[in-house]
Amino acid sequence: MIFNAQKLFVLVGMIFVVISCERSGEWSIDGRQDVNLVVHGMLTNEFSQQEIFLSRTFVNLYESAPPIIDADVRVIANNQLYLFVADMNHPGRYVSEEAFEVVEQLDYQLEIDWQGQMYSATSRLSNVLPIPEISFNPVGQDSFRIGDNIVPLFSANQQAMYEIDIDWSQIEPVGINRARAIYYTFNSVHISEFVRPPREDIIFPAGAQAIVSKYGLRDDFADFLRSTAIETDWNGNYFYGNPQNSPTNIVPGAYGFFATVAVLRDSIIVE
């Protein structure tokens, strides 16, 4: 139902094409000079070297996020200490010294020591339900499009994030031949989900390989992701509310989120 609803709302939006338009242009931002820690941490229940990304806030929209390379990062669970070390090849990426998997019923505490300040966050593993059938939207006879919603927008039973990596380099060795898109299923409905703004159109050929990763979300992480979606993916349509900072579980005074998530992966050939 919600998938159909989105289609109809997009059609509704056609009215406004004739009476309004959006253009790129300059806008002076009253930038705040304080630099804050940003944490992007998603530990999974897969046995692997887990990774955490640290960066700094920035003022200029044209900048890239400045990586943090001088932090001490560790995760503690059940008195077990997991140390993370900076990956010199990928500034801002911290990798656990040893492989481990997140297990159920344990609290995982992240601790980051950066510039004399200790930051921390706690998370407990979510559960994940099976991946539903994913069907890509065809474009013409033998192509598909990235960007349209291909997962349920709403579910009362499971909030989830889908990371879909598509690779068609075997078919088109030159040019853009890989893509990653993120989709969400939440247990609440926001008008911006339905009337989403125009998206970058990426067409890929039939026969591409897609790796679908489904992350089950606990409520606090889902709230964070929903909030970031409202500020990014869903922002700029015909209905919008007052902007607001996304929540965080990093204390004190940092941005981002630390979560432990259960994941399922599947590989499909898009046809």
Binding site: V38, H40, T57, V59, Y255
Partner: peptide, 18 residues
Amino acid sequence: TTPTGFYSFNGQTIPIYD
């Protein structure tokens, strides 16, 4: 309300408001 800064998460640029 316009941003006073930004940060990056999961490949997306997220605004910060004051």
